[in-house]
Design a protein around this nucleic acid. Structure first.
Lengths: 228, 228
DNA sequence: CCTCTATATGACCGAATGGTCATATTATAT
DNA sequence: ATATAATATGACCATTCGGTCATATAGAGG
């Protein structure tokens, strides 16, 4: 954790350093990031850096908590899913959250992706249920609920599906944003409403249609359907 | 390209250097990889390195061609899909190839993933058709064929789907192998037949079922099906 | 043997790295 | 104004980096 000296800084200066660090960690892994580059870009003395942080990893971990905080903050900002929200609308919301995060905090998104790349989640075992928990817990929760509500086919391998959904969600966002830009020919507005933009909804719905048809309940129909 | 001096080396020595480099690039990006580390691990003099390669990037590009060659070689080794092979069996084959590559060449796989991470494919435009071509061309081809054969729903956004399939294929392999190890409790045999191992087929089939039901033709049935 | 060419080597270079520290500056309290 | 504590600074350090080069070794042809 950063030292008190860092948190005593004015918000202005603190955020300057954070933003410089975020830019550095968006382009470089912890291995290849440079303290010198950060202090130069932030316009502070090298000595000051070590008054704020133990070392580079200390700052890196702080940025990771920022990622976490900002994402949580954004999750609570987006309209909450009603309790009786349709299972797949909830999944759609999960994808929208990652998308909104990519839109509002593109650099933090890259930091997060880079972190997930360098530290791939080795699947953990849930201490309570003894179940495998690969990837993002949010998708595990989604699948469990979906099966419980009879919305998702019971034969779906939840751990595999949760992992795949996590991967898709992580990598879908940059694709969608780049595609939006190409299709419209102009940069995407940072204040775009990800839950209402028509073109974005079309694309997302296209993927959702595939996922819904693929995972929804009553596999018999589907299996009969596609077997020729 | 490496200099002639490198290709004149005995196969033994050449492969030693290549393997050391592969290990280095599996753990480090081109930015953070170290010439010193490579020469030390390979047991050659620094001067020799620069008799073989222009610089580190030269070696890196050579390793990338190795990735390409080995994957091609492995593709042709696996039983070829018959001409009249079912559309989705062809997709399954594509996934199996990436899986087999991960199994036979885990380090090369990591090098490839790292490369794709550091150099994300900005979608290109096909010069002939003017169509978007994001991600892996193999999946674009698969989708085009599938639609042509009336096996895939026409409403599927091919570019989006090809991108997602490419992402899934790239990241599925390490998951499946790790899962196989956890489920069986022992390391996966390198000579495992990816197209016949029962447990592996179960898992792959589970994902295939989702993809098939999701993308197969006649969306009407599916859309009616899941709308409550 | 000698000659010529190809390869191997590690000392050496300047630049950049992460990290330290004595000193200077500023803010706070009395 | 004075004393004390907190912060800011950049020269400095040892180490490592990519890259060079003069020299040594080996091999081939005669």
């Amino acid at each position: 954790m950063p030292k008190n000296t860092f948190f005593n800084l004015s918000q202005e200066k603190r955020e300057l350093i954070e933003n410089v660090a975020i830019a550095e960690f968006a382009d470089n892994s912890l291995q290849s990031a440079s303290v010198n580059a950060i202090v130069n870009n932030a316009g502070i003395a090298k000595g000051s850096f070590y008054q704020y942080f133990e070392n580079l990893e200390d700052l890196y971990n702080h940025i990771l908590t920022l990622v976490h905080d900002r994402k949580l903050e954004l999750t609570s900002t987006l309209p909450l899913p009603a309790n009786n929200l349709d299972t797949f609308r909830y999944l759609q919301r999960l994808l929208q959250i990652d998308l909104a995060f990519e839109l509002k905090h593109p650099l933090l998104s890259r930091v997060e992706r880079r972190h997930n790349f360098e530290n791939p989640v080795t699947s953990s075992i849930d201490p309570e249920t003894g179940q495998r928990l690969s990837g993002d817990g949010r998708f595990h929760a989604f699948l469990s609920q979906g099966i419980l509500h009879d919305d998702i086919a019971t034969w779906v391998d939840t751990d595999l599906a949760a992992y795949v959904l996590g991967i898709v969600s992580r990598w879908l966002s940059p694709y969608l944003l780049e595609r939006m830009e190409q299709d419209s020919g102009r940069p995407v507005d940072v204040n775009l409403d990800v839950s209402h933009d028509p073109h974005l909804q079309d694309l997302l719905q296209n993927l959702m249609d595939i996922l819904m048809a693929g995972m929804a309940r009553d596999p018999q129909i589907r299996k009969d359907f596609y077997s020729k």
